[in-house]
Design a protein around this nucleic acid. Structure first.
Lengths: 97, 97
DNA sequence: AAAATATGGTTTATTTTATAAACTACTTTA
DNA sequence: TAAAGTAGTTTATAAAATAAACCATATTTT
C-alpha cells in the first residue's frame, strides 16, 4: 500500500535543493545556500550526495578569482523527483483507496 | 522560503502511520504493522514517538488473553499532519512563488 | 608588506534517527 | 511439559543530518 520513498529525496534539505533546481536552468552554491538557509557544510555534503546519486551535475570553476560551484538537475533527477512526488501523494492524500 | 518540515512527521514510517490513523477511528498494532509493512520493533518505537509528541493516543488492554494495543490520532496530530502537508506542498510544487 | 578579514567552499566530528536484532512475558498447542 | 506462537518492548547497530572546524586563496587594512 505504501510504496518506498526515495531516501535521497526524503530529506528536507535535499528535497529543497532539488525543488529549486527543477525550476531553474542552473544554480550557484550561494543561491542554493540563501534559498534553503542551509549552512555551507551541510549544503556541500548534500550536494555531494545528490551528485553521487546522479540526480544533479556539479560544475566547479572560477569567477573573479573565486571558486564557483554551479549545479544543474539531470534527467534522472527530474524523474526521481516526479516519482517521489507521486508516491508521497499516497501518504498525504489519505482518502485514496 | 522553505518552511521547516516537522521532523516527527517527516519520516516514512511515522507519516504512514499518521496517514492511516487519519482515515480510521482507531487502529490496532497489527493492522498498522500489516498496512505499513514495518517490523514490530520499528513500529513500537515510532508509535512511542508519536505518542510522546501528543500526536496519537495509545491504549493498551487485553483481548482473548493477549495484549492489544490500539492507536488513535489526536486533534493535535490532525493539526500537525495538515500543517505538514501544507508545508510539503511548497517543496513538491515547484512553480509556486 | 604583514596581518587581519572575507570568500567559497570541504572535511571531520558529533548528535540524532531509523532500523533490526534480541529479548520479555504470556498463551496455546502437541 | 516442552515447543511454538502472539504481541509486543528494549537494546544495539547502522545510517543520516548537522554543526563545527578547517583549508586555500583573495582582498583589505594598517
Amino acid at each position: 500500500m505504501f510504496k518506498e520513498l526515495d531516501p535521497i529525496l526524503h530529506s528536507q534539505l535535499r528535497l529543497a535543493i532539488v525543488s529549486l533546481l527543477i525550476t531553474v536552468e542552473e544554480a550557484e552554491f550561494n543561491f542554493l545556500k540563501e534559498k534553503t538557509g542551509a549552512t555551507s557544510g551541510n549544503l556541500s555534503v548534500q550536494l555531494d550526495k545528490l551528485k553521487n546519486e546522479g540526480y544533479i551535475e556539479v560544475n566547479k570553476s572560477f569567477r573573479n578569482n573565486y571558486p564557483l560551484t554551479v549545479c544543474k538537475i539531470t534527467p534522472k533527477g527530474i524523474a526521481a523527483f516526479e516519482s517521489y512526488v507521486e508516491r508521497l501523494k499516497q501518504y498525504i492524500n489519505p482518502k485514496s483507496e
